[in-house]
């Protein structure tokens, strides 16, 4: 298969890209501040983090400690003021907006606390969105979206809209969407925050097992000690800095 063929196969979600050597994510000395009432509040002041492929990492910390800000940096949703940030062998600080968008599409899956499903679209259409943005043809993306929903146990809810689904089902749709392009990294921001205990456990199990099946790393931001315990490693954020928990 030539380079173009390999790109096509990857784009179609059939084959993961060849992994570059080294950790999947390496962040060093990351800083970020926000202007508030004329003053600059430093939220992250030198965060460092290394995550390998297939690892499950929990980020914990008090409210306002900078967990979500760090997750936004890792997810390329926001830009850092300074520091190093290498993802999957790419120095993302050198990427422009379009490059970051492309990397978000192919390299990172998001699972949000409030699901962030498109309200008037079916589960199938919601899972298809990253595939549309990836340029996948209609027939292929429909088949893949169906397959993903079946893999999270929602094969019977393909045509349901978010308001017709329970919280757990909505989060599983979001999980299927996050997995749609086989990203090497899944970011989950309080993924069980809106769910009851029983559903939380089921969703968390599914998130971790699906990620392990694909050798994808998972970064979970959580307040929930039970969720944090399910991770391979725990990192605490305090005063804008990261600390590895024993």
């Amino acid at each position: 298969m030539g380079a173009a063929g390999a790109r096509r196969a990857r784009r179609a979600g059939g084959e993961p890209p060849a992994a570059p050597p080294g950790p999947l994510l390496r962040i060093s000395g990351l800083t970020k501040g926000f202007p508030v009432d004329g003053e600059r509040i430093q939220v992250l002041s030198g965060c460092s983090l290394e995550i390998d492929r297939g690892e499950v990492v929990a980020i914990v910390g008090q409210s306002g400690s900078g967990k979500s800000t760090l997750l936004n940096m890792v997810g390329l949703l926001d830009t850092a003021d300074g520091g190093e940030h290498v993802f999957n062998g790419v120095d993302v600080t050198r990427l422009g907006e379009a490059g970051r968008a492309r990397l978000r599409n192919t390299g990172i899956g998001f699972v949000f606390q409030s699901f962030h499903l498109l309200e008037r679209r079916t589960a199938l259409a919601n899972v298809s969105v990253p595939l549309v943005l990836n340029g996948m043809p209609l027939i292929r993306r429909r088949a893949l979206a169906r397959e993903l929903l079946e893999s999270v146990g929602l094969g019977h809810r393909l045509g349901s809209r978010p308001h017709q689904l329970s919280g757990g089902e909505q989060q599983r749709v979001a999980l299927a969407r996050a997995l749609s392009l086989n990203p090497p990294l899944i970011l989950a921001d309080e993924p069980t925050g809106a769910l009851d205990a029983a559903t939380s456990s089921a969703v968390l199990d599914q998130l971790i097992s699906q990620a392990r099946k694909r050798n994808a790393a998972v970064v979970i931001v959580t307040h929930d000690p039970l969720v944090a315990e399910a991770a391979d490693r725990r990192i605490t954020i305090r005063e804008g800095k990261t600390f590895e928990e024993p």
Binding site: E97, A98, T106, V129, P130
Partner: peptide, 9 residues
């Protein structure tokens, strides 16, 4: 959400 899922400007 579109942007988070990879839509560029």
């Amino acid at each position: 959400t579109y942007r988070a899922l990879g839509a560029d400007r």
